[in-house]
Deep mutational scan, measured.
Amino acid sequence: MALNTPQITPTKKITVRAIGEELPRGDYQRCPQCDMLFSLPEINSHQSAYCPRCQAKIRDGRDWSLTRLAAMAFTMLLLMPFAWGEPLLHIWLLGIRIDANVMQGIWQMTKQGDAITGSMVFFCVIGAPLILVTSIAYLWFGNRLGMNLRPVLLMLERLKEWVMLDIYLVGIGVASIKVQDYAHIQAGVGLFSFVALVILTTVTLSHLNVEELWERFYPQRPATRRDEKLRVCLGCHFTGYPDQRGRCPRCHIPLRLRRRHSLQKCWAALLASIVLLLPANLLPISIIYLNGGRQEDTILSGIMSLASSNIAVAGIVFIASILVPFTKVIVMFTLLLSIHFKCQQGLRTRILLLRMVTWIGRWSMLDLFVISLTMSLINRDQILAFTMGPAAFYFGAAVILTILAVEWLDSRLLWDAHESGNARFDD
């Protein structure tokens, strides 16, 4: 018995066209964080690309023209004298008006014999932002004059995390709450300039795509075929072959399989920071003279006294001054041990922890910024005066060393310790 099946006739004509040209192939790229070699397709503007294995951002879609970056830099340069030299806060102490600005706080630190601690604050609040705007201006002028731009481009990517104007702005709020127990506070004209400078700096850093600047100024022929001998440069993120001198053909720094002496430098910085954190938390970090009496505060006791007036601000200072430094030390110690013992479990967790400490590390400088600003506000000789204690130097040095330890660690070593050939990683 035959089955009668109805015929289905399409209502619209289906047209099949042959592909007349070869589909576009992607360029081969190595991930600078996990060293995976993959094919990167062509990316349009405002599109980002991520590593298929570790999800690290390979290409950032946010990109401004150099002219727009230069305009932002010149605007920031105009704001800087007002943000640093004009009063941020006014207080009335014992019937006398006192003005506080950024430069005055750094000068008070240096004047009291601790120039190293003052230079830490100076670099993060004044030096690094000033280098940022002058570097962008150098790129703008240098591109037109045919100057060598490689050193500036190499420095810009590392400079971003040292620009800490946003953290200093939080420190202004913390210092205001600490001082309000002794005097009446009012915002100064410099505060508005400083807030504007923070906003412009944040926007500029978020749109400063150094890798795209490398592509514009020093374009290189990408690798179009897969080759395990391809290496990625950690300076400019170019994937290719080393030249005859073993250097990256684009930025001219040595092109090595792994960062040289990464573990040794990381261990040295980490152990030194552990040693410095002990006096930083045991010795007094601030000293207040009130009517001839002397009151010393460690980091913890200062947080407890701050909690009596504002528990939320005390929580912020606790996280930045105690929780973050010790968390960074514990995480980095764990990561280094996992590399030495070739741990194969929990790779995803370790990668996330490394990215976390990379982002939060700079916030530990908050305590030094609060001390710097408070020193310029309260300084009335023996009637009422505020000065920093010996722990300030140890704390600042420990924070900087932990930042350097994270920067010096080559994250690809975590993958080397893991089993080879993993296309995915999980716990």
Rank of each mutant, 00 (worst) to 15 (best):
N379H: 03
I14M: 06
L377W: 11
A100S: 09
H46P: 07
L93K: 00
L366H: 01
H90Q: 05
V399F: 05
I360S: 05
P242V: 13
P151T: 04
D297R: 01
L368I: 10
L384P: 00
T75Y: 02
L139S: 02
Q264V: 04
R30E: 02
T204N: 11
G188C: 09
E161H: 10
Q47L: 04
F238R: 11
A269C: 04
A187T: 12
L191M: 15
I199V: 10
Y289K: 01
T239Y: 09
R62I: 04
V210N: 15
I185E: 06
M1H: 00
P222Q: 13
T5D: 12
H237I: 13
A307Y: 12
L347S: 15
D63P: 08
L66K: 04
S301H: 06
V163R: 02
R350Y: 11
R231K: 11
L94A: 01
R225Q: 14
E86T: 03
L149I: 09
H340Q: 07
L323M: 13
M103R: 03
V198M: 12
R380P: 00
R380Q: 01
F217Y: 13
L337C: 13
R150G: 07
R258E: 08
E419R: 11
L306A: 00
L306N: 00
E228N: 14
I400K: 03
L78H: 05
I383Y: 03
V329E: 08
I185P: 00
R68G: 03
C266N: 07
I14N: 11
L290G: 01
W267I: 14
Q186P: 02
M76G: 03
F425W: 12
P284L: 03
G240I: 10
L230Y: 12
D416T: 10
Q104P: 01
T358N: 13
S309H: 10
G142N: 01
T358R: 09
E296I: 12
G142R: 01
M155N: 15
I131A: 06
I116C: 11
N44W: 05
C233V: 00
K328M: 00
D63C: 15
V195I: 14
R348E: 11
G190C: 03
I131S: 06
T298K: 09
L169P: 05
A100D: 04
T9M: 07
V102T: 05
W84S: 07
C236Q: 00
I43A: 08
L366T: 08
W107R: 14
Q104R: 03
N4G: 05
C233G: 00
P87I: 08
I172N: 05
P325K: 01
R245F: 11
C54S: 00
L323T: 09
L213D: 08
L257G: 10
S305N: 11
L270E: 12
Y218I: 05
A83M: 03
V313A: 04
A49P: 04
D63T: 15
M388G: 06
R258F: 06
L69A: 11
I177E: 02
Q264F: 03
L255G: 09
T201E: 12
W415H: 12
T5C: 10
K111Q: 10
P24E: 07
M365E: 07
A268G: 09
L230V: 14
D227P: 12
S206L: 15
A314Q: 10
Q295L: 13
L205Y: 15
A56V: 07
A307F: 13
F369V: 04
L208H: 11
T374Y: 08
Q244D: 12
W408T: 10
I403M: 13
I403H: 02
Y394N: 04
S193A: 14
N44K: 14
E212W: 13
T349R: 13
S119C: 06
I98D: 02
A268C: 11
S65T: 06
C236L: 00
V232K: 14
H184V: 05
A183E: 00
R25P: 08
E157V: 14
A183I: 02
N4V: 06
I287H: 06
P41D: 05
I172V: 08
I19E: 10
I98H: 02
R53T: 08
A175Q: 02
N148F: 04
H252I: 05
L132S: 07
F82W: 05
I351Y: 10
D381S: 03
M356P: 04
T349Y: 13
F393E: 10
E228W: 14
L94D: 00
I43T: 06
A268Y: 06
I383G: 01
L368C: 07
R294V: 05
T298N: 12
L413I: 08
L347V: 12
L336A: 10
M388A: 06
A183N: 15
T15F: 06
P222V: 15
D427S: 10
I91A: 01
E161G: 14
I98A: 02
Q186M: 14
I316L: 07
Q55L: 06
M304L: 08
Q108M: 15
H207K: 09
P325V: 03
V324M: 15
P390A: 07
P151D: 04
G361W: 01
L197M: 15
H184F: 13
R62E: 05
L156G: 04
P222K: 14
M356W: 10
P390Y: 06
E22L: 06
F318Q: 09
G293Q: 13
L88F: 08
V125P: 05
E407L: 10
L263H: 10
